[in-house]
Write a protein that binds this DNA or RNA. Structure first.
Lengths: 194, 194
DNA sequence: CGATTCTTTGAAAACAGTCAATCTGTGTGG
DNA sequence: CCACACAGATTGACTGTTTTCAAAGAATCG
């Protein structure tokens, strides 16, 4: 599992960074592994998010619930994605989000402090953090544009282009929740394309 | 103007960083200043965004235009905000965004290369970048949640809470464009509260 | 002033949401 | 292996929020 993480780091940093044996060992000893069964929570609203999670295997979702109990998914995470409520991790305050497993999953976890220490001593991780943040910001930008300017149909097509692999893996109503439309509306959009 | 930037850096890094005289000089020599008249473009779609812009004074907006010519604002930037199309700056590709001044404005500009060089030699800037990225991601997260889950009324109230100072400074129809609702709808929402 | 730009208002239309019921597939326990 | 439960998909009829279109009023600026 840790090898997968190291490979991922090297791949993401595009040859601009290396990992020595010692660094690999340091990484391996800093992350703890956790398995989650389908439907099991990684984080529940009201709790403080303590770990950044790297997904080795499986699929998770992060979502918020409104006062009527309706769920709104803010993120999916499959292999090689990170998950966790950054705001709660950084501030130490209670999270507004829930994170649970949509499939049986395997994660590697690291605390805020652990990650900071690690980043200090491993340049590759420093770089990785920058790259991930950068990509995250750009992706968010695009998602915001989609959310405020696209029709239900356009939102679906955009999702299809952006995350083609996710479609077959996620139940329809969760994609709807991610897009900010109802399952019925999404279903009608999809029906059109057959 | 450069002093303002330095003060801002120290303030944002919350005492965790310092700036020597040499570093201040280096910063001053790395940014170039630019003034923009109201309505003047800082970036037009199709062009490559070359600079990160730090706003010393004034107010700008970043927006995309759809095929029907409708505008969707993805960001406002007032004093002490950064603006620029990160995607275009990073990739060197044509931007899909426009950026123009809503008021007469003063910016400090720096190229991608300039910023990278500067960051390497000034730890405070390295830290600043991390903090800004972090805050940006959290703010985006919140905005996405608002966009996919709130009604027109809730969107407005959320904006009011998040950016209370902006309200008086921005024309109503631009706030509507930022929220992803029509100016008529926003106007009706506001009328309710009087 | 005249000319934009911005706001306000009304009426009609469209899109998406809600409610409710049925259908499908899947998996689990007896 | 069947029966049942459960999660998810599908469909129809209705409702409602928001958009669209159009026009008229403020406000601002050169």
């Amino acid at each position: 599992m840790h090898d997968m993480l190291c490979d991922y780091i090297l791949q993401k940093t595009e040859g601009k960074a290396t990992l020595s044996k010692k660094e690999r060992q340091l990484i391996a000893s800093s992350f703890i592994s956790r398995t989650l069964k389908k439907k099991q929570y990684f984080l529940q609203e009201g709790d403080v998010s303590l770990y950044h999670g790297y997904v080795c295997k499986g699929c998770l979702r992060m979502y918020r619930r409104d006062d009527k109990g309706q769920e709104f998914i803010s993120q999916f995470a499959t292999e090689n994605w990170w998950i966790g409520d950054r705001e709660s991790i950084a501030s130490g305050k209670a999270s507004k989000y829930n994170i649970d497993a949509l499939e049986d999953s395997e994660l590697l976890l690291i605390t805020k402090a652990g990650f900071e220490t690690l980043t200090q001593s491993i340049p590759a991780l420093q770089l990785l953090t920058q790259i991930i943040s950068h990509n995250n910001i750009i992706a968010s930008q695009n998602r915001i544009h989609a959310a405020i300017s696209y029709s239900a149909e356009e939102k679906y097509l955009d999702f299809l282009c952006t995350y083609p692999d996710m479609i077959e893996r996620l139940p329809q109503h969760m994609i709807a929740s991610y897009l900010g439309i109802t399952r019925e509306t999404l279903n009608r959009v999809i029906k059109q394309f057959k």
